[in-house]
Nucleic acid binder design. Structure first.
Lengths: 201, 201, 201, 201
DNA sequence: TATGAATGAGCTTTCATTCAT
DNA sequence: GATGAATGAAAGCTCATTCAT
């Protein structure tokens, strides 16, 4: 209950502007009660982040390597689609993850990094699997994973700016993945320059 | 002078943890001197951001549409490379842009959005030009721009986690652009599903 | 409690020299506690003034018009006597009203003006009543009220200069009222010059 | 020049709100120049007050005891009239004397007290002279002087509240003096109560 | 278990004053 | 004489946290 209210408050006012007063007022409990359940403002934000991480990571299913090329592609698309769905539907979460939780302190930065690291790890493993199966091009899978992750983050971040738009998450995910999968350029349109073709060894 | 010190201080301690005391101490001036030149803590951060924006935007040259397919590709790669270079060499700036300036307040959020919006606009225009020339595939250029921007941000953000690594910016940029240009997947490896192939109309 | 201490502190050090620190120290509470009950330094001074106004105005009873000439004179004398008593006994209040509250800012100046305006209004009404009963000479009652008020203020203000004297308030009030009632000059001692005899029409 | 500007500034903004910046800006000199001529903010206010005191005291002529009853009355009336004139014409001065200079610090309070003391002394001496000549009733001349002084101050103070009114100083002075001279009450209207008739012995 | 009055360290900001030029 | 950039002490205020009830 208090956690849910804190989520709303943090999302609306931001971590620093949100006071413990705002949270307990929103939750309808006394100040003391707050400290009965949480070690402090920072601690409740920590817990909140943990729950958001768990919620998001639950949206991501491990890709089944035996599903064949098209199956793998579909599963990745579904993963991205589910994450998009969840975040586009809940601006609270998106705002907290992309804005309020950023740059608060070293501890939280590391926590965020670990979260994104886990997600990037999942993507990276899928890419490696794809490479082993000959589906994914021989690019640096670490970089590939960061790119996919960053692309998703930026599109979501962009959605925070337009408050009234309820974007079509599925279409957006499809458009995004199409670019990630096939690239921006028509095949054969540009010559493969020496430096541009290879992946990081 | 004070501005440069503020950049260092904000980057090291973060906006909220950094006090005006830290800045004036680092700059070796008196408290009052600070307020002689800046309206306050928030104001100096604003100026700092403006200068960083200007510095970064100066790294980006408009792509010459008459340069031919390979020329355009090279120019975009050089743009990305220059931005990577500048930011990988100056962790201060990277940290401030990607961490400390995020989620401070509505005004700064809008400022950041405008900055990223301008960059995305430049990329988008390049993509449109490429599409008119038949080089870039018929994807949604807005989404394409966000993806490129987000990919760059994520890779840079990732670099903040590893303090000691001095990454090879050029190689990273090449790797990143290779994926953006050609996509992750081998041509023909997966069948084009109805929803995955098209761009947003 | 805090208010009472503030009264002492403001009276001793003056509004500007008195810091919130002085007040909380005198009251034996923490800084934060102060701001729990008062919006700020200015606010507590406002409240203090309000309470002083109320206290003083409670000393003034409306003059009963049916009490006859001598009754009215006695009632007015008693009013002045009670105010004198209260203020001569409490140098704190006198000092705050006559010194510290003066010229602080436009808002407080207006507040003081309203207070003195109310008192002058009461006196003015008494004078009008007296005029209707044929007791008070046909002078401008507004000017008459200001004179009585000003006379009282000046005598009180004078008392602030001599810290050790505990003046006889009753005698002072009597002396003051005798002059106000009968004037300074022996009847018939000076010829009534054209301009000097009349009141403002 | 600087002094005149300071007078304006102090009158408009009040002592504490007026900064040295305001004064030097109004005077068109540099900060340093200000301190070349005045020891500080407090010092220039001191000088300003001194000049105002001198200006006002120059308006007051010693009453000639040999002028006869009517002459004395006329001279006192002229004194009051001149002071009224000067102050009603210059709200700056009135405001500074009655508002801004009050309650600033112990030193200034004493200075003001001395000024008012000198004026009260002049009035007191006139009253004593009048008593010796059998013109002034046997009241306490000190109290009488305070009353006259306070009456004048209050009427002037009242004029500060009404910014647009350009009051007729002469008529006001006449009205004021009529009341002071003849009293408020019709002769014989009230019985002289024991305590009310006498002066302080 | 729940309360909320009390706390106090720490913040940003102001402005009278100085002094090298 | 004149300047104005630099100073820094001191002010008012906030808010996460505690603890006696």
């Amino acid at each position: 209950m208090v956690l849910a209210c804190a989520r709303k408050v943090f999302s609306e006012k931001g971590y620093h502007s949100a006071g413990v007063s705002d949270i307990v007022e929103a939750a309808g409990v006394a100040r003391g009660t707050f400290y009965l359940y949480f070690a402090g403002k920072r601690a409740i934000f920590d817990e909140l982040l943990d729950s958001l991480f768990a919620e998001l990571e639950s949206k991501i299913r491990r890709v089944d390597p035996s599903a064949g090329a098209d199956g793998i592609a579909r599963e990745m698309a579904e993963n991205v689609g589910r994450v998009f769905d969840a975040l586009l539907r809940n601006r609270d979460i998106t705002r907290i993850l992309l804005r309020e939780a950023v740059g608060l302190d070293a501890g939280l930065d590391r926590k965020l990094e670990e979260f994104y690291g886990r997600i990037a790890g999942l993507i990276e493993r899928s890419l490696r699997t794809g490479q082993e199966m000959g589906i994914v091009r021989p690019v640096d899978p670490r970089v590939g994973a960061l790119i996919v992750l960053g692309a998703v983050r930026q599109v979501l971040d962009h959605s925070l700016a337009a408050p009234d738009t309820t974007p079509d998450g599925e279409a957006l995910a499809r458009s995004l993945l199409d670019i990630m999968v096939r690239g921006l350029v028509c095949p054969g349109a540009i010559s493969p320059p020496s430096g541009l073709s290879g992946s990081i060894p």
